[in-house]
Simulated assay, not measured.
Amino acid sequence: MIDSVRRVAVISLGGTIAMTAQTAAGATPTLSADDLVAAVPGLADTGIHVEVDDFRRLPGASLSFSDLLELAVKIETLAVDGVVITQGTDTIEETAYLLDLVTAGDMPVVVTGAMRNASMAGADGPANVLAAIRVAASSEARGAGCVVVFGEEIHAARWVRKTHATSPTAFTSYPGPIGYIAEDRVRIVTRPAGSAAVDPRDATAPARTAVVTVGLGDDGTILRAVGDQVDGLVVAAFGAGHVPMACVDALTDLAKRMPVILTTRTGSGPVLRQTYGFPGSESDLLARGLIPASTLAPMKARILLQLLLMTSATKDEITQSFNALP
C-alpha cells in the first residue's frame, strides 16, 4: 500500500523568525524548529507530516558558505516530499540562490522567514511557515527549483530580492512571483529555467570574492584595493553595465588576473553587450575581459562566482557558466 501522507522537513537556521525579545538589548534567536512548528495554527488540519531539525541558531547575517553547503548535503539524504528552510531575512535571497545551485532533483526546497519576531504584534512567522510547508508538500512546486515563500507569494530563487528593511512585504522579484497560495492551494503560474547544478561536495577550495559598487566620481582606487585581497570580483555597475572612464584601467588590470563579473546595480534588467561604445561602456569592458552576468543581481553573481571558484573552476569555465545564464 502506498503511503499518501505528504512529508515535509522543516529545518531551522535561526533568524528573526526564531527570535524573541528577552531583554532591553533586543531580540535574539531562542526558538527551536519544534517551537516554530508548534506556533503554526492550522498546520494539523493540512494532514502533512512534519519533521523538524534545529540545524543552526544564528542570525541570517552570520550564516556562512560552509553552513549552507553542509545543509545542501543534508537535504540530499532526507526521505521527504519537500523541505522548508527557516532563517533570517538578511540573507534569504543569497541562501535561496545558493541552494538552487547546489541541490539537484525535483523536490521542492522552500526558504522562508519573518520580518516581525515572535514577541511582536502581528508576527508573520507562523503564516509564512504554514504557506511554505504547503508549497514544499505540493506536487505543483516540484521542478520549480528553490523558491522563497513570503506573504503568500512564491518567488524563484534567481529573481527574489529583499527590497525593504522592515516591511512584512519586503520580498519582491522581477519580473514577478512565479506563483502564490490562495484558499490553501498552491498555484504555480510560470517556471524559471533550471540552474546549473554545483555538487556541494566539490566546493572545498579556499576562495574569497567581493562586490564593489561603482559610484559617481569613482577613480578605480577602491577597485584596486579590493582586487588585491580577492580571487574574484563582482562589479555592480551603472545602468546596463557602465563605469566611469577613470575605472577602466583598474578593471582591465584586474580582469587579466582574475574573473571579474559585470553586473548592474539597478536591481533589474540585463547587462548589455553591444549597445554603447564609449570607454567604460559594456562593450568596452567586455572587450577588456570582464564577464557579463546577464540579469543576475550583484550579490547572486557573487554566490555563483564563489561556488565556481570553490570547485576550482578555470576562468574559461566561469565564463561559460555566466554566458549560459538566461
Results as ranks from 00 to 15, higher is better:
Gly105Thr: 07
Val111Ser: 06
Leu308Trp: 04
Val248Met: 05
Met115Phe: 03
Cys146Ala: 13
Met19Thr: 06
Val40Asn: 01
Thr23Lys: 11
Leu251Cys: 10
Pro177Phe: 02
Glu183Met: 03
Val102Phe: 02
Asp249Arg: 15
Gly269Ile: 08
Val271Thr: 15
Phe322Lys: 07
Glu94Lys: 11
Ser195Trp: 04
Thr252Ile: 09
Ala104Phe: 02
Asp199Glu: 14
Gly47Ala: 13
Leu13Arg: 02
Pro200Gln: 11
Ser12Ile: 09
Ala127Tyr: 05
Ala61Trp: 01
Arg161Met: 08
Leu304Tyr: 09
Pro41Met: 06
Met1Thr: 14
Ala9Cys: 10
Ser321Trp: 04
Gln274Val: 14
Thr295Val: 13
Leu309Ala: 08
Asp53Arg: 14
Ala205Asp: 14
Gly15His: 08
Gly289His: 08
Ala141Val: 00
Ile11Ser: 03
Asp35Leu: 12
Gly47Gln: 13
Arg116Thr: 05
Ser138His: 00
Glu94Val: 05
Pro270Trp: 03
Ser4Asp: 08
Val50Asn: 02
Val243His: 02
Leu262Ser: 06
Thr30Val: 10
Phe65His: 14
Gln274Lys: 14
Pro59Asn: 08
Pro177His: 04
Gly194Asn: 15
Ile133His: 00
Asp218Tyr: 04
Leu130Trp: 01
Val260Tyr: 00
Asp231Val: 09
Gly82Asn: 03
Leu99Gln: 04
